[in-house]
């Protein structure tokens, strides 16, 4: 993980903010680009053996073994109301930590780590699907695509999703 040696303004280090630059790990889900603050990402894994958990909420895809720790696999597609993944498609995992527990987000592809100036961060348009707005803080308009910033906390807050 590269760290910019820029001084000052490190008030939101945990969210990958360095100076007025924010770093994001980018990934695709169903063709859409998403970004997660780089410092909240613990690991990026290739295809894993995922053990199913019966009776679990639909978002929970199962659990996987990450070097002796049990990681709960979450499929954001369910939260976003996207169609389930094709069986043949590759699955990658982005491991994040939330309240001391590890979660792995199942995604399609991992892209590069992008450094983006915080000035370019924008609010989500009001017309965005409520399910999408629910898990995202805002977006970046990049030259060739839109990058939606995923809010891990909200994504993993299940009580809210059930109530919504």
């Amino acid at each position: 993980m590269s760290t910019s040696n820029k001084s000052g303004g490190g008030d939101k280090i945990a969210e990958g903010k360095v100076g007025d630059q924010l770093e994001y790990v980018t990934m695709t889900i169903n063709g859409q680009w998403f970004g997660i603050p780089v410092l909240s990402v613990q690991d990026v894994l290739g295809p894993q053996k995922i053990a199913m958990i019966p009776l679990a909420p639909p978002e929970v895809a199962g659990s996987l073994n990450l070097r002796g720790r049990i990681v709960t696999a979450i499929d954001p597609r369910m939260r976003l109301g996207l169609p389930p993944r094709d069986e043949n498609e590759t699955v990658m995992s982005v491991v994040v930590e939330h309240l001391g527990e590890l979660y792995s987000l199942l995604i399609d592809q991992v892209g590069e780590v992008l450094k983006l100036p915080s000035s370019r961060f924008e609010q989500n348009p009001a017309s965005l699907d409520a399910r999408w707005r629910d898990i995202s803080t805002g977006l970046y308009r990049l030259d060739d695509r839109l990058l939606i910033v995923m809010d891990i906390e909200r994504l993993l807050n299940f009580d809210k999703s059930i109530a919504a």
Binding site: I53, P57, V60, T72, E101, L156, F158
Partner: peptide, 9 residues
């Protein structure tokens, strides 16, 4: 994980 604690079995 916390989200599965209410599965009683």
């Amino acid at each position: 994980a916390p989200m599965m604690r209410d599965i009683g079995v």
